[in-house]
C-alpha cells in the first residue's frame, strides 16, 4: 500500500517536473541574447534555408525539414513551430481555415521536372513506359506526390497507367526520391528543379512540356500560438524579400507569382 502511494506520488512529481522543465527551457531561451525561432519547412527548401537561416538577425533560427504534409500533421497534433513553410499553397490555406496558421503568403515558385541520373537513356516522359524502368515518386499526400499525379492525369490514360505501373516507391518526401535516384535504386522520378540543382550534377533535370507543368507555388505563415510571433512574421516577410528570398533564388526557385 505504501509502495503504491509512493509510486503514485512519484509519478505525479515526475509529471510536475516535466512541466517545470518545459517552462525552464522556454525562459532560458527567452533570457538569451536572441529568442529561438522554430521553422518547419518543406524538405525541398533544405539547402536554401540552411544557407540563409543563420543570417537571420532577430532570432536564432532552428530549422526542421520534412514533407509538407508531415509538418502540417504535426501542427494539427499540437506541435507549435513559429513558422510553417510548405511546398504548396493548399496546406497553408487548410491550416488557416482550421485556425492554426495566420496570414499565409506566397513566397516562391518552383519548377516541376522529370529527374534522371546523369547519362541516363531516358530523355523525356515518353521514356518512362519501358519494361524495366523503375520510377520513384512522392506519396499521394505530400505536395510533390500530388503534383505528380496531377501531371500524369493529363497524359493519355494508357500512358498514365503505364507510368504508374512502373512506380516502385511512394516516398514520404522529395529527399527520398532524390536519394533513390542518386543511389541508383530508381531510374527516374518527379521532383522540383531545385532538388536536381542540389545534387551537384549527379542528376539531370528534364523539362516537361509547358502544358504539363503544374504551377508550383510555396506558401508560408505564422503558426497560431507561436512563441515568437513577431520574429516569425519578420522571417515570413524575408522569405518574400530578404536574405532568404535571395538564397531561394540562388537555389533556383522563382519569385512569388
Amino acid at each position: 500500500m505504501r509502495i503504491v502511494a509512493l509510486v503514485v506520488a512519484g509519478a505525479a512529481l515526475a509529471l510536475v517536473a516535466c512541466g517545470d522543465d518545459d517552462d525552464g527551457d522556454a525562459t532560458a531561451a527567452g533570457e538569451g541574447d536572441k529568442p529561438r525561432l522554430v521553422v518547419s519547412a518543406a524538405a525541398s527548401m533544405t539547402e536554401a534555408l540552411e544557407e540563409c537561416g543563420p543570417e537571420f538577425e532577430h532570432a536564432t533560427v532552428r530549422l526542421q525539414f520534412a514533407g509538407s504534409d508531415e509538418l502540417a500533421a504535426q501542427i494539427r497534433q499540437g506541435v507549435k513551430p513559429d513558422v510553417y513553410a510548405a511546398a504548396n499553397t493548399t496546406l497553408p490555406e487548410e491550416l488557416k481555415a482550421e485556425g492554426l496558421l495566420a496570414r499565409p503568403v506566397e513566397f516562391a515558385t518552383n519548377e516541376f521536372v522529370l529527374a534522371v541520373p546523369k547519362e541516363s537513356e531516358i530523355r523525356s516522359i515518353d521514356g518512362l513506359t519501358g519494361d524495366d524502368v523503375k520510377i520513384a515518386i512522392g506519396a499521394e499526400d505530400v505536395p510533390i506526390g500530388s503534383y505528380t499525379r496531377e501531371t500524369l492525369a493529363q497524359l493519355r490514360a494508357g500512358q498514365e497507367q503505364a507510368i504508374l505501373d512502373n512506380v516502385r516507391s511512394n516516398e514520404p518526401d522529395v529527399k527520398g526520391i532524390v536519394g533513390k535516384l542518386t543511389l541508383g535504386a530508381a531510374d527516374a522520378g518527379f521532383v522540383y528543379v531545385t532538388d536536381v540543382n542540389g545534387t551537384g550534377g549527379e542528376l539531370e533535370a528534364i523539362e516537361l512540356p509547358a502544358e504539363l507543368q503544374p504551377s508550383v507555388t510555396y506558401g508560408a505563415g505564422v503558426v497560431d500560438g507561436a512563441k515568437q510571433p513577431e520574429q516569425a512574421q519578420t522571417f515570413v516577410d524575408q522569405l518574400v524579400d530578404g536574405p532568404c528570398a535571395d538564397a531561394l533564388e540562388e537555389a533556383g526557385f522563382g519569385p512569388a507569382p
Partner: peptide, 27 residues
C-alpha cells in the same frame, strides 16, 4: 526498409512504413 526497399503498398510498405504514410492524413 524505407531507404533500401522504398515504400509501395503491397510490395514494400510494411506496417511501420504504412503508419508513417498515414500519419499526415489518416491518423
Amino acid at each position: 526498409t524505407l531507404m533500401f526497399a522504398g515504400s509501395f503498398q503491397g510490395i514494400t510498405q510494411t506496417v511501420p512504413l504504412a503508419i508513417y504514410d498515414r500519419f499526415s492524413t489518416e491518423f
